[in-house]
Design a protein around this nucleic acid. Structure first.
Lengths: 123, 123
DNA sequence: AGGCGATATATTGCCACGCAATGCATCGTT
DNA sequence: AACGATGCATTGCGTGGCAATATATCGCCT
């Protein structure tokens, strides 16, 4: 059972993770936080102090847009990808794959044991 | 032709990269820098101001050990993995794989195009 | 009615770390 | 002698994750 991923790991890909969540469908902050937590099996636990600044930054960059809505009882700020946000998601995802490939090429020759089975809590 | 990987990406895995280079065989700072550059097709360009502090930090943590040697003309500081450094490499590599898997699970359902062919400069 | 935990958003201050810039010294080549 | 590559090191800056804190509403339990 690996521990929570540290701040340094998140640093490089939290933006991408948030964009990818919003790539599926629009969502509000708290929801994104929970989805990241669930999708990662509790390994990614972005705090409020982490996530909201990310959303503000992405919105300021024009990658996502927001709109308040309280028709559902709760006052929520819904976010969705803008056109350039969708484009950025593509670019970021591709760059991430390249980065992973680079590290894989460094690790591969070392002959480390692979983790046996991907059993992420089922579902 | 993707651009250089930014500081935020490096943040999460530079330690792992350095450890993995030393996992192959002992090396000195400048050499590690060049190997990272070459192994990544110029995508990872750790500056001296980045790399040397990393080495000092890893040594202070007892993960690597150093010894000066000028028998080869040049005065070089050789680093090698300690026992706990080798253990850490295993742990870090495994955690990295898990992290990659998490993000992969987030990106997969999005149906982004895969990059066609891994042609990293040839060789 | 009151209390409490979950939901929901936001901000402040701290700290770690990549990086440009700078410094210094040696080696090989011209 | 001059210059670029090699080789190690440090200082100061900016970025961004995070704990802590603040505020407000909702549903549930007593």
């Amino acid at each position: 059972m690996t521990e929570r991923f540290g701040p340094d790991l998140l640093r490089g890909s939290l933006d991408l993770m948030v964009l990818s969540v919003l790539g599926k469908e629009r969502a509000y902050g708290y929801q994104i936080q929970q989805q990241l937590r669930e999708a990662s099996g509790d390994l990614v636990q972005a705090s409020a102090g982490t996530l909201y600044p990310v959303l503000h930054r992405l919105e300021a960059a024009g990658l996502i847009s927001s709109s308040w809505d309280e028709s559902s009882g709760r006052k929520r700020k819904w976010y969705e990808l803008t056109k350039s946000g969708k484009a950025r998601l593509q670019v970021q995802a591709r760059q991430w794959d390249e980065y992973v490939a680079v590290i894989q090429r460094l690790l591969a020759p070392l002959g480390l044991e692979k983790l046996p089975a991907p059993s992420p809590g089922g579902m």
